[in-house]
């Protein structure tokens, strides 16, 4: 008889993360959430909590919580790279669980990079 746990999805050894910049801040998101990278159009949104884009010439296109296409305005798309699960960290308990923040990429000797969930980041109430 198979144990129910056998069917559980095994965590991958690495995951593709798309890194991008908004202003001075560097962020990462699950590359599988991003449908395409586009020029920022009138429908591209910026999120105050992630910082103000300088030019915001690019947009990450993804499906929002309603399954519709949404665009997040960014300054620069740094690229996609596989990140080992050993370099991923959850949000520490004392920091709460800020909406949209799902964890960090911790590269040796570098400041942690905030990893965000794109739909959750965009859905946050205005001003947050």
């Amino acid at each position: 008889m198979m144990d129910a746990g056998v069917h559980a999805t095994e965590a991958p050894a690495s995951v593709d993360v798309l890194f991008f910049r908004i202003g001075e801040a560097r962020y990462g998101a699950d590359a599988s959430q991003v449908l395409r990278i586009d020029r920022a159009g009138f429908q591209a949104k910026w999120v105050e909590a992630l910082g103000m884009p300088r030019e915001g010439g690019r947009a990450l296109v993804f499906h929002d919580a309603r399954g519709e296409e949404a665009q997040l305005c960014v300054d620069e798309v740094v690229g996609v790279r596989p990140v080992s699960v050993h370099q991923l960290r959850r949000v520490p308990p004392a920091a709460g669980q800020p909406r949209g923040v799902i964890g960090f990429w911790l590269d040796e000797g570098q400041a942690p990079v905030v990893l965000i969930d794109l739909p959750a980041s965009l859905d946050a109430p205005k001003g947050q």
Binding site: V47, A49, A95, G96, P98, G100, V113, V114, S121
Partner: peptide, 9 residues
């Protein structure tokens, strides 16, 4: 060490 600001905190 260098700090990374955390959104919505």
């Amino acid at each position: 060490t260098p700090l990374t600001p955390l959104p919505r905190t």
